[in-house]
Amino acid sequence: MKTILTTLIFLLGIFAVKAQNYGEIHGRILDHATGEPILFATVSTEYGGKLIGTTTDDEGRFKLKPLQPGTYAVQVSYLGYNPRNIENIEVTSGKIYFLGSVNISTNNELVEFEVVGHKLIDVDEPNTLVIKAAELKHNAMIKSPAKLIGSITPELKTDENGQFIVRGSRAGTSATYVDGMRLTGGLGNFPGSSIKSISVYTGGIPAKYGDITGGVVVIETKSYFDYFYDQNSR
């Protein structure tokens, strides 16, 4: 009996490790003209010669998984609509690449689209949103970090003092950390160009942040080597 239990625990551990080695792509397909969700649209991608596909649900949402880390292109098709192709999607281990709302137009419409951004969500921590420097670099709101962070999720807003509030929680129940140090006020004139990554916890807050119940915004700034790399990669 003990041997069987040990074997089961070992196998579960292997499955857990394998699950963490994969990523996912989530999104929602909408009609460009009406904004209504498209039901049963086909969403697919290909990696290593293998086709991975799914269809949207009654809210137009889809999930492509499991996906090995790498660069993907997602194709969206639906009868009577122009197909969409979204390229250069970087899938990371243990993360969800969230495309947001993807609009498609009917065959009678000629519309140009632009994917303006995405969020990475931890598969094991669905209440955590992460944006890396590569996505921040071309964001129009990078000069105003407070507005940029406030746009990450509708669950996040700022109070009259510029401090972040998550899910309408009371003042003092949310916190902002910069390089491990808790801020006592708003971001003020914090330089957006110095940000390496932004993480927003709207639930399941790690114990290391103490008794915070509302939510946590974690900002990591660039090191000297990050600046050096930026200068030499231009």
Rank of each mutant, 00 (worst) to 15 (best):
A73V: 09
T173L: 14
F113S: 04
I149T: 02
N85F: 13
L110S: 11
D226A: 09
Y47E: 04
F98V: 00
Q163L: 07
D159C: 11
L30Y: 06
I25N: 01
P83L: 01
I149W: 02
Y224A: 15
I219K: 02
D57V: 04
N232F: 14
I25A: 02
A146I: 10
G162A: 13
D58Q: 07
T128K: 13
Y22K: 05
L183A: 09
L11S: 14
E59N: 12
N161F: 15
N161S: 15
L120I: 13
G203S: 07
I121W: 05
S194P: 00
A133S: 15
T92K: 14
L39F: 06
N127M: 11
S169H: 10
E36R: 11
E36S: 13
R182P: 02
K147Y: 08
V178I: 15
T106A: 08
E135H: 11
D230W: 09
L129V: 12
N82L: 08
T106W: 07
I195Q: 02
Y97Q: 02
V111Q: 05
Y72N: 01
I89S: 04
K157N: 14
D122A: 13
G35C: 05
K137W: 08
K222V: 13
K18I: 15
K208N: 11
G192Q: 10
G162T: 12
G100L: 10
G70P: 08
V130A: 11
E114F: 04
G192P: 04
R167Q: 11
E125L: 15
H138Y: 15
V218Y: 03
F62P: 01
R234V: 13
A146F: 01
I14M: 15
E220T: 10
V43M: 03
G186R: 03
K157G: 06
G35R: 03
E36G: 06
L39I: 09
K196F: 12
S105C: 10
V102G: 01
I205Q: 03
G94K: 05
T6A: 14
A16C: 12
T158M: 14
A73L: 02
L79T: 05
G186M: 05
I89K: 04
A41F: 01
D159E: 08
G60T: 05
N232Y: 12
I219N: 00
I198K: 05
D31P: 03
M1T: 11
L64S: 01
I131T: 13
N108R: 06
Y177F: 15
T153F: 01
L183Y: 05
N232I: 09
T202E: 04
